[in-house]
Structures are given as structure tokens and as C-alpha cells.
Amino acid sequence: MSETATQNPTNRSRVSAVAAWESLFRAQVAVMRTLAAEFPTRDISFNEYDVLFNLSRQPDRELRLRDLNKHVLLTQPSVSRLVDRLVARGLVCKEPEPTDARGTVIRLTETGFAMFRRVAVDHMKTINDRVGGRLSPEELETLAQLCDKLRDAE
């Protein structure tokens, strides 16, 4: 890009946005790879844990399947198959959505919640080492605010 093009405020903004995105994306990939590699159990997969985590944060520990799809980084068919595996293991249950017969509600069972809590304790140690150990408390707060701002822009 020419020097004149980078001096234009619009172009500088675009270049900065792309550079920030690339940095955020690469950091996210690096952190996720570490967290997956150091995941503390073989009892559940990293993606299964993600489903249990998302359900644990909801009122009554339940979500409509279509809403769960918005929270995880899997395609809808993959989430459906993963939920079916969790149902078979007694970690979640599926129920018809009371307000929409076409929908399904996924609820975390007591067994699933116990599994989540057991794994979460060790998983939080890895998160703290990988993220908390590298940023100051102020940086962590700023990072959370910036990520929330980007996520809320949907």
C-alpha cells in the first residue's frame, strides 16, 4: 500500500481494524489450542465441556437447542449429535419446548452439573495460567470489556 493510502484516515482505520482482528484471531487460536491440549480430563471432550459450561450459566441450566447453537463454535448438526451423546451418558436431557412444539430444550442434569463442576476446577487453573498469568488485573478487565463490546455488536 502506498504511503499516501496509509495516510488517509479511512485507510488507516481499515488497516488498524484488520491488524487488530488478525491479532485477536491468532491469540484466540493459540489460547484455544493450549486449553484443548491441556484439557484436564478424558471423561468429556473440550466441546462437550463447552456445552455443559453454557448450560450451567443459564437460568434453570437449560437452553433451547437453537440458542445453544449460538453459543458454541460448532455447526447445528454437530451440536445435535454432541447433545445426543450427552443425553446417552445422562449429562443432559432433551425435552420438547413448551411454547413451540418444533423446538427442543436441552437441560443440564445433576450428573452433568457435577461433571462440569469437577472438570471446571482444573480447567480454570489452565485458563488462569494461560490468560491470567500473562495479563495484569487491569489488562484482564480491559480485555473482557473489549471482547464484550465486540460480541454485543452482533
Rank of each mutant, 00 (worst) to 15 (best):
T99N: 09
R33Y: 03
A144S: 12
L82C: 15
M1S: 13
R89K: 11
N47A: 12
A36L: 03
E62C: 15
M32C: 08
E110M: 12
S13E: 12
P77M: 06
E3D: 15
N128V: 01
Q76A: 10
Q145S: 15
A27D: 13
K94C: 15
T10S: 09
A5R: 15
N128D: 14
F25G: 03
R107M: 06
E154Q: 12
A36F: 09
V72T: 05
D129L: 07
L73C: 08
F53R: 11
S13K: 08
L150F: 01
P9Y: 11
S13I: 05
T75R: 15
A101P: 13
H123V: 12
C147M: 12
N8I: 14
V79I: 13
G112P: 00
R61D: 06
N54P: 04
E141Y: 07
A120D: 05
L55A: 06
T142C: 12
N11M: 04
F53M: 14
T126V: 11
V79H: 05
I106Y: 00
E141D: 07
Y49Q: 00
A27I: 07
E62S: 11
I127F: 12
A36R: 14
F25N: 02
D122W: 00
N128Q: 10
F25L: 10
V15H: 07
R14V: 12
V51W: 04
L24G: 03
D122H: 08
T10G: 11
M124Y: 12
D100W: 10
V105F: 13
T142H: 14
E62T: 09
R61P: 03
V121G: 14
M1Q: 11
G133R: 07
L108Y: 00
C93R: 08
M32Y: 09
D100L: 06
A153L: 05
V18F: 14
T10R: 11
N11H: 09
T111K: 15
M115N: 00
I106T: 08
C93F: 04
S23W: 02
F46A: 10
D67C: 06
P40F: 14
D129Y: 00
I44M: 03
R57D: 03
G132E: 06
F39Q: 01
R57K: 07
L24P: 01
L146F: 00
R14S: 12
R66W: 05
S45A: 02
D67H: 08
T109H: 02
G103H: 05
P9C: 13
S16N: 07
L35Y: 09
